[in-house]
Each structure stands twice: as C-alpha cells, then as structure tokens.
Design a protein around this nucleic acid. Sequence first.
DNA 1: TATAAATATAACTATGCAGTAATATAGCAA
DNA 2: TTGCTATATTACTGCATAGTTATATTTATA
Lengths: 115, 115
Amino acid sequence: MSNMKNKEELSEEALEMIASRFRLLSDPMRLRILHTLGDGEMNVTDLVIATRAGQANISKHLGILFNAGIVSRRKEGLNSNYRVADETIFELCEVVCSRLKKQLETRQNALAGVF
Amino acid sequence: MSNMKNKEELSEEALEMIASRFRLLSDPMRLRILHTLGDGEMNVTDLVIATRAGQANISKHLGILFNAGIVSRRKEGLNSNYRVADETIFELCEVVCSRLKKQLETRQNALAGVF
DNA sequence: TATAAATATAACTATGCAGTAATATAGCAA
DNA sequence: TTGCTATATTACTGCATAGTTATATTTATA
C-alpha cells in the first residue's frame, strides 16, 4: 500500500515543511506582529506604529506570514487589513512559553540556597 | 506592582527567548535527530548512521540541543548517549503537522472539480 | 489630471548559521 | 607507552534572510 506510514523515517520533504513552519515563528519581529494582531484586525500603518518598526520591514513580514497562510488580508481602499488566520500559532507560543518558564524555574531551584 | 502582566506589549527579551526556541526546531536535520531519538536513547555513532549525516554535523546539532535543554547526555566510556529531555517538542511538532495537513486539504478542495 | 497617502516590491548589505574538513580530547586496548 | 575509537571543537565556506533605502503601485482626493 502506497499510503503506508513509515514510523521509522520521515521524508526530507516532510521535515522541510515542518521546519519551515517553525522558521516562520523564529523571528522576534514576526512574533511581535502576531502578538499585536492578537487584539484583532489591523492595517499596516497601525502595525508600524504599534511595533515601532520600518514600514517596508512590516510589509515584508506580513507578506511572508500571508504566503504561509498564518494571516489573512482584507483590502479596503488604500489600506490592507491583516488578521491572524491560524490560531494554532498561539497554542504553539503558549506551549513554548510554559516550557521556558518551567525550565527557568528548575534552574533557579538548582541555585537556591547556594551561597 | 512590578510583577504586573502587560498584555499589550511583550519585551524584546521574551520575544527573543521564544523565537530562539522555535529556531531550534526550524532545521530539518535537528528535527530528524529528535525524531530518531524518539525511539529512545542513542549514541552519536548510531545517530550518524541512522541519519546518514556527517559526525561533526551531528555532534554540533546535539550540542545545540543539549545546551537548550531539549536533549540530555549520559556519557558511558567512549560513548555519549543522548535522549529527548523535553517531550513538549513532540507536542509542538504534532500541532504543526496537523495544521499543515488541514491547510493542504483546504487547498486540495479549492482545486477539486476545477478542470 | 495632478498630487498625496498607504502599501508592496526591488536591490543591497550585513549577519547568522548549516555543513564540512581537520584537529583536539578522552577513554580503551594491546 | 602506543595506537585506536568515539566524540567534541575549531576554522572555514556558502547560503539564507532581516533590515533598510529607494522606488513602484494602487487608490483616494483636490
């Protein structure tokens, strides 16, 4: 059967797809944009103001996120309004954040009472 | 209160920590290593064989994952045995993978019946 | 039509990092 | 000791990409 799942080995293509997804989230500016968009739809100018970044930079990041299907775009006159289209993003961030907290806590305890 | 959570703005430091975590997972070779280690503890040589990669490359990736606390190391004679220390990794991969599947399915449906 | 505003894109630079080859280090064996 | 094996590290190269500047594109307005 051609559809058999091979649990031992993942194809290079599958690995690349998954890695690319994580790569999208591996940039602080994109995370900042997504977090800002968490409040709801925003246009580019407002995002530029909110993030205190350059317009070209924000547009480029939004284009990347849009192409990946993570945000959606709604054009309205001169404006482009973006919103988060993939809510699993926040789930991923929360898992990472919780884990980081736990990890730091463990390290703190390791030092507790030492000197 | 100095511990007040500011829901509007994330610090650059927090963003960088979270982004770094995702960056660890944004490389196909590291994902392959982690997937291989999913079967249990392995030493470097076996990982080199299983992944068909260079020894220096595997050692470097393992060092990166070890420093991040994602894998643990147990030295035994000449060998270094690694295992996954942070199981949330697999949770993250599963969320990403499910989302990718759904996304591709949606695109397939968009083309269904067209020509 | 001419001008201005909002956004996108192109070209460029600089930085980070994956892969590799060579070497170092550490434990084991003869 | 001498040599062998497993792993780590260093130095290097090439590629991907974040940020920026300048420009193009699109739509609204005077």
